[in-house]
Design a binder for these strands. Structure first.
Length: 793
DNA sequence: CAACGACGCTCGAAA
DNA sequence: AGCGTCGTTG
């Protein structure tokens, strides 16, 4: 505190904020009278009351971590700390939103919404904070190639750039898989190693080539005025490191820093927090649990939390060990499991509320059987005297691919379910196309967006013409769209291509008002803009036509999805408050025009879309069972949890076998899953599982043995129905598919595509057939035997 | 230049 | 089972 005079005033605009705050502190000094403190345990209270200096809260699963953070924020503010000097960082929007809601509720129980006690309080994700800091300071920091209208490239855009770069550098296919190149670049960025540094360190042939790719990749991004997810963190951290005045502004503004899930921070995030916290004895409070560190593979560095006391000497450490979430058998199972990790400081888990039913472990025959067992188990809870609602149940799995059989079984038995995949909506083809139009409207140098939509719908610009334009653009160091503006200069184009290119430029210019976002035809409404983009780009017509012709489910949904995108923009617009954080507003430099409000809003919208997390989609109010990966489950809790696929190679995943550290991370992942369960836990392992279309014999996960002990009930049902390993509840009225054969010419029915004729079948164990369906325009699809029913021959 | 079918490759968790 | 790429055809 001595480092930072109060009240800090980040800029002139905020002077008025420094006025004394109304404080409704509890009467008297006794914590028992204070509603913010009276129901806390002793260690929780110590964490909330801790005021100056660094604080590490080691919060075991279910120990009231969020409660401590929110109470601490509320307590700081009610005791006179200015809300705008508090910064809390989380990993997902959902976590941030929940924290914000709870703090607001504590400080402003009436919900007047205008409480000055929350004014300027910043609770956000690492990535959002970086996106905003970068936008605000990018001009001052003078990062070459980057301006305030930068685009955030997603994984697809990254892949597309990497593929092109690999091609250009003549690094061919199998030796240079784009995915692993991307991983190398991502790792480097998480370590704050830029392309130049990487090159300097590169010794062998392989890394020297990687350095070339990294450099070229980065150059492409900058040419497009784009950053990737890792850049958000790396560039912001480096900016704070290198620019003292920017660092000082942030340090002065944020006196109190809180970081949630600290065990999952990577080096860039560590440095970011460290730089914002500042020198001396900063008020940095981090909360986390080393036993729940599950993001090592994306650069999370568990030593950040293990060595916190070394980084911040004199830091206070408070351990929250009491579990308020799970029944005793669940907690005991979790404890037995995690004890097997060698690289770990043991922490006692204890609950003061003993009792509770046994943890069920069921060995099943195959994934269909497994799904049936899960369905039956859940259904039983709805039929008890005090039934559980669907929304109180969840299924966790290691990989997304495992959700399929569960989905089939839920659908077949009428159990409502939702999959927590936040990005799924934005990954649909039609939405990606619409967003690409919006992106190029906001930033015409966005080459990834350009490539996606330049010929969608087809407008006579094929691969050949585009390559010619791209070559010209590359030679002249232009973005491809800008090159198109001087299409006459591009050699070798047909008259038709020139014409199409000109019309495309006109289209985009119409949408953006030639980049000004001004003019009569451009309204101030974001939803209107999205609507116009979808219409005048031709996407609307293209997908309407396709829905009329095609009968595939996905084609029928596309027009609706586009309409949904307009609604989402309208909703964003409604909730959008340009000045919701005045102190982070971009100060407009002399002689520089302020960007038009619609453009500012469009940028904010695209940014929010880019930073959606899977976990953000978890919405218990939807009255359905939630399906999600173990990673997405972190931080959540459900009365009844089913964890499926506890098999060698799945959990632990086969790619984790070589390294002990990776295996221990798999064990922590399993631990995270178990500790999400409040009252009921089912764990399943299938003896046979179909992977890549082939049914394979499995081995039960070693974690099953490690969990076993008092309070865990085993049930081996793997041999119950010996004759029918492919028993399926999903498609009734069907004979045992294992015994069915579909010779070429057989007429079959498929639940989705209807009647078709078999044109080819795979031999033996690959139970697949190619079937031609008239219902989808005589297309031939490869399908599982299990989904087909013979109707004649 | 566009559309489509055949074929071959890969195959993890994510902001 | 899904995806990208290649080759053929319209």
């Amino acid at each position: 505190m001595d480092q930072k005079p109060t009240p800090p005033s980040p800029n002139q605009m905020n002077q008025s904020e420094a006025a004394p705050l109304e404080v409704f502190h509890a009467s008297g000094d006794s914590p028992v009278d204070d509603p913010l403190l009276c129901d806390l345990t002793e260690p929780q209270m110590r964490a909330v009351l801790h005021e100056q200096g660094a604080l590490l809260v080691l919060a075991a699963a279910g120990s009231g971590k969020t409660r401590v953070i929110t109470r601490r924020i509320a307590h700081l503010i009610t005791t006179g700390v200015a809300p705008w000097s508090v910064l809390a960082l989380t990993f997902t929007n959902k976590a941030a939103g929940e924290m914000r809601d709870r703090v607001h509720h504590l400080l402003d129980p009436e919900g007047s919404g205008k409480s000055r006690l929350v004014r300027g309080l910043t609770i956000t994700t690492f990535h959002s904070l970086c996106a905003r800091l970068l936008r605000r300071y990018v001009e001052q920091a003078q990062i070459p190639g980057l301006t305030g209208d930068y685009t955030i490239y997603n994984s697809d855009d990254q892949s597309s750039v990497i593929k092109r770069v690999l091609k250009r550098l003549d690094l061919n296919g199998s030796n240079w898989p784009p995915a692993s190149v991307r991983a190398v670049i991502s790792d480097a960025k998480n370590q704050l190693i830029d392309a130049e540094t990487y090159q300097a360190q590169a010794g062998d042939f392989y890394s020297k080539n990687l350095a070339r790719v990294y450099e070229a990749y980065q150059a492409e991004l900058r040419k497009a005025n784009a950053v990737d997810f890792d850049d958000l963190l790396m560039l912001t951290a480096r900016m704070l490191l290198q620019h003292e005045h920017i660092r000082a502004e942030c340090q002065n503004r944020w006196e109190y820093l809180l970081v949630d899930e600290y065990q999952d921070t990577n080096h860039a995030q560590f440095l970011l927090a460290n730089l914002i916290a500042g020198e001396g004895s900063p008020n940095i409070c981090v909360v986390g649990d080393p036993d729940q560190s599950i993001y090592g593979w994306r650069g999370a560095d568990i030593t950040n939390i293990l060595d916190f006391e070394k980084s911040y000497t004199g830091a206070r450490v408070i351990t929250l060990g009491e579990n308020f979430r799970s029944t005793e058998p669940i907690l005991a199972a979790a404890d037995r499991l995690i004890r097997n990790n060698q690289q770990r400081r043991h922490k006692d888990l204890f609950t003061t509320t003993p009792g509770g039913g046994a943890v069920q472990v069921v060995l099943c025959q195959n994934e269909q059987h497994e799904s049936d067992i899960v369905v039956d188990w859940f259904k039983a809870f709805t039929e008890t005297e005090s039934p559980l609602a669907w929304k109180e149940m969840a299924v966790f799995y290691r990989t997304n691919a495992l959700s399929r059989s569960i989905e089939d079984a839920f659908r077949a038995s009428g159990v409502p379910y939702v999959i927590a995949r936040g990005t799924s909506f934005y990954e649909r083809e039609e939405i990606r196309h619409a967003l690409a139009y919006l992106r190029i409207t906001a930033n015409e140098t966005d080459d990834a967006a350009f490539r996606r939509i330049v010929n969608v719908p087809t407008r006579g610009l094929g691969a050949t013409s585009i390559t010619r334009i791209e070559n010209y653009a590359h030679k002249n160091n232009l973005s491809t769209f800008r090159a198109m503006r001087s299409i006459g200069q591009v050699p070798g184009l047909t008259a038709r291509a020139v014409n199409s290119a000109q019309r495309f430029v006109e289209l985009i210019d119409d949408l953006s008002g030639g980049g000004t976002f001004m003019g009569e035809q451009i309204s101030g409404s974001l939803a209107d803009l999205v609507q116009r983009v979808i219409q005048s780009s031709g996407l609307e017509k293209m997908y309407a036509d396709r829905a009329r012709i095609g009968k595939a489910e996905s084609d029928l949904e596309r027009p609706d999805n586009l309409a949904e995108l307009i609604s989402s923009a309208a909703q964003f617009e409604q909730e959008y408050v340009p000045e919701n954080d005045p102190s982070l507003d971009v100060p407009v430099a002399e002689g520089r025009a302020e960007p038009p409000p619609l453009l500012v809003m469009l940028r904010a919208y695209l940014e929010s879309v880019s930073l959606v997390a899977d976990a953000d989609m978890v919405d218990p109010e939807r009255g359905a069972v939630t399906l999600m990966t173990l990673h997405a489950a972190k931080g959540l809790e459900f009365p009844a949890v089913a964890m499926i696929g506890l098999e060698e190679g799945i959990l632990p995943h086969f790619r984790s076998r070589e390294r002990i550290a990776a295996l221990e991370e798999e064990r922590r992942l399993c631990f995270v899953g178990i500790t999400r369960a409040q009252r009921h836990l089912l764990i399943t392992s299938a003896r046979y599982r179909t992977m890549r279309g082939v049914q394979e014999r499995t081995i039960a996960s070693p974690f099953v043995d490690e969990i076993s002990g008092p309070g865990v009930t085993f049930s081996d049902q793997a041999d119950e129905v010996v004759s029918s390993p492919r028993r399926s509840s999903s498609y009734s009225g069907q004979s045992d598919p294992a015994l069915v054969e579909f010779p070429v010419g057989t007429v079959v029915r498929h639940p989705r595509f209807g009647i078709g004729q078999v044109t080819w079948t795979s031999a033996g164990e690959n139970a697949k057939a190619r079937v031609r369906f008239s219902s989808v325009g005589e297309k031939t699809l490869i399908l599982e035997y299990a989904r087909l029913v013979r109707v004649g021959s």
